[in-house]
Design a binder for these strands. Structure first.
Lengths: 251, 251
DNA sequence: CGTGGGGTTGATTCTTATCAATTCGGGTGG
DNA sequence: CCACCCGAATTGATAAGAATCAACCCCACG
């Protein structure tokens, strides 16, 4: 099941033909384990491979000269890590395992092969790139113009939506220091802010599981716009392919 | 000359064949003028078109409930605005003219046609998307983990690199309020910070033209990594096309 | 039982926002 | 050519928000 991760993720964008599924599978052949905290690839390293994340949480981050760290992305299973470096020879960010993870490195060249055999998959990768960018965009707004409390609230709603869209609570599998690095806050202040949110009755927290007590209020408070995470994002060009390759597979 | 804008931009990524150039030209047919401050398209509007910017500066921004504004991108001539919304029906951000501009709206469908007639252009668009994402990434680091002075310094180096890579000074064609909105600072503090930088002897400023007095120091101070803006970013797949379509055009 | 890492809490400091007043500069009309 | 006007930039004073420093708690683990 871990093997089908990326496929499940891509189905958010379009139905896949049997052939496309086969091709995507080839990206997940070489599965490896990394321990929490381990760096898969550091910024500046040759960027010759991408990674498919099949289990656990990871992130993209950058360390600054003064030792500060900024987390740019939190990756969940099914996401491809490194796509944005497709045009660069060297990595622009570190990839670090947040929890223990399983990830599958695959060479850039393999992606090229895949694109050549199934051009529509190139479109789908483009869509994921666009979606990742939209998430990043939201992060920019978050960092630039929201208070600590709004930031944390927004982050919680985003994570809840991505991890457990239909459940009232979810596991936030990361240390508060990492949350701080993602939100541009100190670990201490993240702690305070979480408490403030729970004092307001918006969330409650036991260990790593966070319960959203009042989702609507949290959404309004953090000015969260659900659009940018919407699933089944689509694009005209898929229709062309749908006609041709008969074998559309349903979920 | 304004007509060749997007083409000049794409040549950063690869040589173009005559046919590809023709196709790109079709994206710049419908040129229009917008006055400084005008909104080309507001967030939430149907995202049925992209825009090619042929003259002047524009930006992507979002207004928050409390009236604050965050600028996510500054667009220069040659850039395509809206690519990241390719998978969405509605715009995620406002497009606003910073100066008086010339821009060419073109329907999403046209892009699809272009991709169908010249698949390699799809790859190039993917590359620009990846590059835009890298710029955005840098913005995240900027907002999350740098002081006001570092942010402004970083912004100045980025703009100088994009606008006038080889000259010592350049025109910063935007109000300080807009700079603040891009950097998550108040307009007042931008003013103070610019003064601080010039007190340090790193820059000097007369009207809208900024002179970088000590580029190296500014780069170090702001922890600027030139890689992410590198030109001639390339990707394996272009080589395939180079062989086939004989007519590569040189600059 | 100790040990150590993460989380919490309090006190203080620093950075940046906000508010308010003043200056600057470019464009307009007399 | 000058007086005026307006928006933008600057400067100062004050306040709010978050970082930092330091102590302590909690709990999982040996």
């Amino acid at each position: 099941m871990a093997q089908s991760c990326i496929i499940k993720h891509f189905r958010d964008f379009a139905e896949l033909t049997r052939r496309e599924i086969e091709l995507l599978r080839t990206l997940e052949r070489d599965q490896r384990s990394y321990a929490a905290g381990e760096t898969l690839r550091a910024s500046g390293d040759p960027a010759a491979v991408f990674f498919t994340l099949t289990d656990g949480w990871a992130c993209a981050s950058r360390c600054l000269a003064d030792g500060e760290r900024q987390v740019m992305d939190v990756f969940l299973p099914g996401q491809v890590m490194g796509l944005r470096e497709i045009g660069y020879d060297h990595a622009l960010s570190d990839f670090v395992a947040i929890t223990d993870i399983q990830a599958c490195p695959f060479p850039k060249a393999r992606l090229t092969e895949v694109f050549d055999s199934a051009p529509r998959l190139a479109d789908l990768f483009m869509l994921t790139l666009a979606r990742d960018q939209s998430i990043l965009l939201e992060r920019v707004v978050n960092l630039g113009r929201r208070s600590a409390e709004e930031r944390v609230a927004h982050f919680l709603v985003e994570m809840k939506t991505r991890v457990a869209p239909d459940a009232p609570s979810f596991q936030l599998r990361m240390k508060q220091g990492v949350i701080g690095d993602a939100l541009g806050l100190s670990a201490v202040h993240v702690s305070r802010t979480l408490r403030a949110l729970s004092d307001r009755g918006l969330i409650s927290k036991t260990g790593k599981t966070v319960r959203i007590d009042d989702l609507q209020a949290l959404i309004e408070f953090s000015d969260f716009n659900p659009t940018y995470l919407q699933r089944n994002v689509r694009w005209a060009r898929q229709s062309a392919a749908e006609g041709a390759e008969a074998l559309a597979v349903n979920r």
